[in-house]
Deep mutational scan, measured.
Amino acid sequence: MPVRRGHVAPQNTFLDTIIRKFEGQSRKFIIANARVENCAVIYCNDGFCELCGYSRAEVMQRPCTCDFLHGPRTQRRAAAQIAQALLGAEERKVEIAFYRKDGSCFLCLVDVVPVKNEDGAVIMFILNFEVVMEKDMVGSPAHDTNHRGPPTSWLAPGRAKTFRLKLPALLALTARESSVRSGGAGGAGAPGAVVVDVDLTPAAPSSESLALDEVTAMDNHVAGLGPAEERRALVGPGSPPRSAPGQLPSPRAHSLNPDASGSSCSLARTRSRESCASVRRASSADDIEAMRAGVLPPPPRHASTGAMHPLRSGLLNSTSDSDLVRYRTISKIPQITLNFVDLKGDPFLASPTSDREIIAPKIKERTHNVTEKVTQVLSLGADVLPEYKLQAPRIHRWTILHYSPFKAVWDWLILLLVIYTAVFTPYSAAFLLKETEEGPPATECGYACQPLAVVDLIVDIMFIVDILINFRTTYVNANEEVVSHPGRIAVHYFKGWFLIDMVAAIPFDLLI
């Protein structure tokens, strides 16, 4: 008679799926529990143990900040960024110097990925580790590398530091407007667009060049630039800015003055950032001319202004700041037409079709709590990747769950009947059967004279019903998954307890 339990259901295979997918890609990662103190490590794979030199037993239950890997060259700011990422709910990448158990130093890129439950609360953290440099290539500990984003994938490793954006290309926007319009339909740009040429040739750093990471940081200074100062900065030398009595002219307006920039070969870094931020506020060169004239017309309804409409929906549905990093990277690809469009465009503009998908598509409701890094690593669709929660398995109709209350009560009843059979069957065979043979035949009273025979008949009927119930009862397979398919249940029961239950259900007393 089957006594099969499996009270692990309803099970959740999400954690096993993450481990299996990460292991298949030869990654070095740990999984931490966000619900406990210090976000203790609950799993670390073999790749991480080989990377740091510690065994799994030495890593388990330690804080996922990996303070046991810190050393003299470990930056405090990087460690603080990892700790801050564990307090938030967004994906974050941090470069930090770690030390192995043998004392060797290596520069590592740590990717902190939160995993949320159905309520939107962070319950786990996945920390992925990628070695960037070994100890002989690690720089000085005073050099802070965590304020910069990861290198873009479309640049060669040897040319990542030679990417320079020439400031004269930004200063000569109005001069290039006529050349853009003359391109017409034969050019790649839309009317009114501004073409910015980027020099990728390796050259020595000069005062006129600005690194790509500095251009990325310009967006942080746009908020500090007032509207009046932006307007004066875009007017140009024809209309000098008016300053109040006793007030000095704005240095932001002076930063885009061609006369002032041409007199000296070098520009201050602050002026460069502010000038680029001011130019980015204009949607095209037409807006710059309109600002000089004193009238700013409404933005025209053409394809170039609607190019950012799908980007707005993608940004609203993005799951991490990696989408913004990807957008900034692609927006700086050289030799393309940049349409400086305000994100607050007309909502009635139709979304044009684009061959290049900048932001990841909208994630469906079932995966809105899973970050983009987890979705990318697992390579699963929205119909396959579940949320991290207890999910009731989908069972067929008329199927009994093996952990249901009805099955528990039924098993206790069958257990009592088995005990009765084990006690009274030998007793009936030894004593009652002998008395029946010696006594007179009682054929007239039937079952009324033999109450134990009636009980034995009921017990046999219950055993037959138990066999039928076992054909529709779920079970737990070797992978700790609840199986509810009727065919698989029948095959599993035939290979197991079916023969024993059938022999126990045969009414031998009635056959004798």
Rank of each mutant, 00 (worst) to 15 (best):
I126C: 09
G187I: 13
G314M: 09
K135V: 07
G47P: 01
E177Q: 12
G246C: 10
S272K: 12
T353G: 12
T367C: 03
P227R: 05
S207M: 11
A253L: 14
N317D: 15
N38M: 06
T152D: 05
P347M: 09
P202E: 10
N33A: 07
D67R: 05
P258Q: 06
S243Y: 15
P310M: 15
V94A: 06
I123L: 13
K101M: 01
D199A: 04
E230W: 06
E372M: 11
R328N: 12
F163P: 15
V295W: 13
K135P: 07
A97M: 09
I359C: 07
N12P: 12
C276G: 09
S263T: 06
I126A: 11
P227H: 01
R62L: 10
F125M: 05
L343Q: 13
S322H: 13
C49P: 01
P299M: 08
A223T: 14
P227Y: 08
S354A: 14
A260E: 14
G224R: 14
A193K: 05
R280V: 12
F48M: 01
E118F: 11
S209I: 13
R4K: 15
I330W: 05
P249M: 11
L378V: 03
G6P: 06
V374Y: 13
A253K: 15
D67W: 01
G53H: 01
C64R: 01
N33W: 03
I126W: 05
D102T: 05
N257T: 14
V110P: 01
F14G: 07
R312T: 14
V122Y: 03
I31L: 08
M133G: 14
L267K: 08
I30C: 06
V325F: 11
I359D: 07
T152I: 06
A268C: 05
S379D: 04
D259I: 06
G381N: 07
A97T: 12
A285P: 14
R100M: 01
P310S: 13
F48P: 01
V110S: 01
E208D: 15
F129D: 01
R356N: 11
A382V: 06
R181H: 06
M60S: 01
D219A: 05
G224D: 05
H254F: 15
P150T: 13
P10T: 12
A211Q: 06
A172W: 04
I363K: 07
A97H: 15
A169T: 12
A203W: 03
I42G: 01
T216Y: 08
Y99R: 01
W154H: 10
D321G: 12
S178P: 12
V36T: 13
S104A: 07
D144H: 15
V113P: 01
D136K: 15
D119T: 09
G47D: 05
G88S: 14
K101H: 03
P386Y: 03
L315I: 15
V377E: 03
L296T: 04
E130Y: 05
I30F: 01
G53W: 01
D16V: 09
A78I: 01
G139I: 06
E50I: 05
A303R: 06
C105V: 15
R312C: 14
D346A: 07
G306Q: 07
P249K: 07
K166D: 08
C276H: 14
V279Q: 09
G345R: 06
R356V: 12
E274W: 15
S379N: 04
K116L: 08
G381Q: 07
V194F: 12
R159M: 14
M291H: 15
E289L: 07
L127G: 01
E90F: 13
Y99E: 01
G306M: 06
R301F: 01
G187K: 04
G381C: 15
R366E: 03
F29W: 01
M60C: 05
M308I: 12
D219K: 15
N146Q: 15
Q376H: 07
D219E: 06
A57N: 13
E214C: 09
R73E: 14
K373H: 01
E37T: 14
V180G: 09
E90R: 13
A282H: 14
R27H: 08
S250A: 15
T371K: 12
S278L: 11
H302S: 05
A97C: 11
G314V: 07
V41Q: 01
V384Q: 08
A78L: 03
N146L: 15
S206R: 07
E91P: 11
F22G: 07
L170S: 14
E134G: 14
E50Q: 15
L171P: 13
S140Y: 15
A78W: 01
T353P: 15
N146M: 10
A350H: 13
L51Y: 01
R20S: 09
G71Y: 01
K161Y: 01
I123D: 14
P310T: 10
R73C: 08
K161P: 08
M218Y: 13
A285I: 11
E365D: 13
V113W: 15
R5A: 09
E91T: 07
K161R: 12
P240R: 07
N257D: 14
Q376I: 01
G381P: 01
G149H: 06
S243V: 05
E208G: 05
H309T: 07
C276S: 07
R281D: 14
G183N: 09
S207E: 08
V94F: 01
G71I: 01
N12E: 10
V59N: 01
A228S: 06
M133F: 10
H147Q: 03
L212E: 06
T371A: 14
S379K: 05
P258I: 07
T65G: 03
D111P: 01
Q25E: 14
W154M: 15
V115I: 11
G158Q: 15
S278H: 15
K344N: 06
D102C: 12
K101Y: 01
G6W: 08
N339C: 02
R252V: 09
V196Y: 04
R62A: 09
A89C: 13
I31Q: 01
S264R: 12
P150R: 13
L212Q: 05
A211N: 15
W154S: 14
T367G: 15
R76N: 15
T329M: 03
E365S: 07
D355N: 12
F29V: 02
S140V: 07
M291N: 07
S261A: 08
Q11F: 12
P72F: 01
R176G: 05
Q11I: 09
A303V: 07
A228F: 09
S275H: 09
G226A: 15
Q75G: 12
T305S: 07
I126P: 01
A175W: 03
P10N: 12
G236V: 15
S272I: 07
D102K: 01
